[in-house]
Computed example of a mutant assay.
Amino acid sequence: MLLSPAFQPDLPAAVAFSGGADSTALLWAAAQAWPGQIHAIHVHHGLQAAADDFAHHCQKTCDALSVPLHVAMVDARNAPGQSPEEAARKARYTALAQAASAAGLKSVWLAQHADDQVETILLALSRGAGLPGLAAMPARFERHGMRFERPLLGTSGAAIREWLRERNAAFVEDTTNADTSFTRNRIRHELLPALEKAFPQFRETFARSARHAAQAQELLTAVAAGDLAQVGEPPRIAALRALDRPRQANLLRHWLRMAHQTQPNAAQLDELLAQVAACSTRGHHIRIKVGAGFVERTGDTLAFRVAPSA
Rank of each mutant, 00 (worst) to 15 (best):
F171I: 05
A229L: 14
R211L: 15
A225P: 07
A194E: 09
A158M: 12
L195K: 09
T176P: 00
A159F: 04
R211E: 15
Q215F: 08
E218Q: 09
A213V: 09
P234T: 09
R186K: 12
A170P: 05
E173D: 00
V223E: 13
T175F: 00
A198M: 11
L220S: 06
E173C: 03
I160M: 09
T180M: 04
F171W: 11
R188G: 05
A222M: 07
G145Y: 06
T180S: 01
L195H: 09
L164H: 06
G157L: 11
S156Y: 01
N168H: 10
A198W: 10
L191V: 12
P200S: 03
L192Q: 10
F206P: 10
L219E: 12
A224E: 02
Q230V: 14
A158W: 06
T155E: 06
M146T: 01
E162Y: 03
D227Q: 14
V223G: 07
N177P: 02
E173F: 03
Q201L: 13
V223Y: 12
R165H: 10
F171A: 07
E218H: 08
G157Q: 15
E166C: 04
R208W: 14
S209K: 07
F148H: 02
A207Q: 13
G157C: 08
T175I: 02
L192C: 10
A216I: 13
R147Y: 05
A194F: 03
N185G: 00
L152H: 11
V231G: 13
N185S: 01
T176N: 02
E166G: 12
R150A: 11
A158Y: 05
P234H: 11
S181C: 05
V231Y: 14
L191Q: 08
L228W: 12
L191A: 08
W163T: 04
P151C: 00
I187R: 02
Q215V: 13
F206T: 15
A158R: 14
A169I: 05
P234K: 11
R184M: 03
N168T: 08
H144I: 03
R184G: 00
L195N: 06
E190G: 01
R188W: 04
N177L: 03
T176F: 01
A159T: 09
Q230E: 15
R208K: 14
T180Y: 00
D227G: 03
R208H: 15
P151Q: 00
F199R: 12
L220H: 12
A224D: 01
R167N: 04
G226D: 05
E204V: 13
R208E: 08
T180A: 00
A169F: 02
L228G: 10
A158T: 11
A229G: 07
E149S: 05
A229W: 11
